[in-house]
Each structure stands twice: as structure tokens, then as C-alpha cells.
Design a protein around this nucleic acid. Structure first.
Lengths: 93, 93
DNA sequence: TTCGTTGTTCGCAAAAATACGAACAATTTT
DNA sequence: AAAATTGTTCGTATTTTTGCGAACAACGAA
């Protein structure tokens, strides 16, 4: 069980929920977003959304920047690239 | 939250554990494998491994074929291709 | 038919994920 | 300073995941 397999599993796990996939896909289209934007579109409680964002942050896929009184979320490009590479290799693309 | 996002999340979830990534990666190199082969290489109980294989089977990523007294596991090519496409699009490769 | 091999299923336990509302904190607006 | 906005954290409950050993089932071999 290699290090890359561990990392891939970690990223996959973070993407293992529809809400989190949705968020990442949105951040692919528009570079940033705010929790409030998401909250309007998604049928979940704010606290639940916050937890999903935390999961993505903990996995390293996104990062938050304070822009008072809001928080601007963006893709963590470095880790996103890593995930991209890992999945690319995994699927032998 | 689209259907594709649901599917992607489902596949990602199935790949969200190192053991399961390991199994899929092995099946990428050699077309098939037996539970016994994996059991020797992985530091987990047979019953635990069996559960992980069931997860991959339930997600549609692998399929088992009886080859008494063993079970031959292979990649489910159709679903694997689907997953491949979904991730490809997701990562904009 | 009895034994051995292979792998699943069962029963259990502990940990993690999911989800919600209420309370809280930080900052801006009034 | 008071009120409004934004989003996190807390407390709680439910469900799912992970893991093990023991028991079981299916089949081939002796």
C-alpha cells in the first residue's frame, strides 16, 4: 500500500459526497465562491454545509480566505493538481 | 446536484479507502485476482477484505466470477469506463 | 463420505460521517 | 453603540463505516 494510494484514497474520500462534488465542480467553473452562495442553492442547513467545506479544506482541496464578513473559498491549486495527477495515473489516462 | 455528480460521488466514495484503491490498482495491472492473493499481501482479516470487495462490487467497479472453490475478481469494464469518463470530465483533463 | 480449501456472512464493537438547530464570534452597517 | 450579516462551532442524534473472530456454505480432493 503505497503513499500515492493513501493520498488518492484521501482525495477520493473527500469527493465521496454529492455536495462536495458539487462544490468542487462549481469552483472549477468560477474561481471562487462564498458559503452563502452555496447555501442558497443547496437544500442543506448552513451548519451542514460548513462541515462539508471543512472536509474539503482538511483534505486540502480548497482554501478559505477571509473577506469580512464573508469567507471566500477557492480551489487549492497545488493539491488540486496533485489529485488530478493521481487520478490521471490511476485511470491510466 | 446532477446525476453525474451523484455517480461521481458514489465512485469516489468506493475509492475512499487505501485497501480498495490498492485492489483496483492491482486489477489494472493484472486483469484478475483472487481474494486469497490479496489476503496474503494485505495486513487485514479475511472478513474485512471480503467487505471491501463487496463495497467495490456494490459500487459496480468490480465483478466476481465463481471458479470453484475460489472467486475470480475482475474489473467491471463498463462501469470502470464510466467512472473514468466522469473523473476525466471532473478534472477537465 | 469425510476432510480441506476458499471465501462469505453473522454478531459484535468502536469509530467516523451525516445532519440539524441553537448558540456563538467577527465584522460591517445603521 | 446597537443591529444585522456571515459563517463557524457546539451539542446531540442517527446512520454508516471499519474491523475482527467465529461460524457457516460451497466445492474439490482424499
Amino acid at each position: 500500500m503505497s503513499d500515492d494510494q493513501q493520498k488518492l484514497a484521501r482525495y477520493a474520500k473527500a469527493l465521496g459526497h454529492p455536495v462536495r462534488v458539487y462544490v468542487m465542480q462549481l469552483l472549477g467553473q468560477q474561481s471562487c465562491c462564498y458559503s452563502g452562495d452555496l447555501s442558497e442553492e443547496l437544500p442543506i442547513a448552513k451548519s451542514t454545509l460548513s462541515q462539508h467545506l471543512k472536509e474539503l479544506k482538511d483534505a486540502g482541496l480548497i482554501q478559505g480566505e477571509i473577506e469580512a464578513p464573508r469567507i471566500k473559498y477557492c480551489v487549492n491549486k497545488e493539491n488540486w493538481s496533485e489529485a488530478q495527477e493521481l487520478f490521471k495515473t490511476f485511470f491510466k489516462i
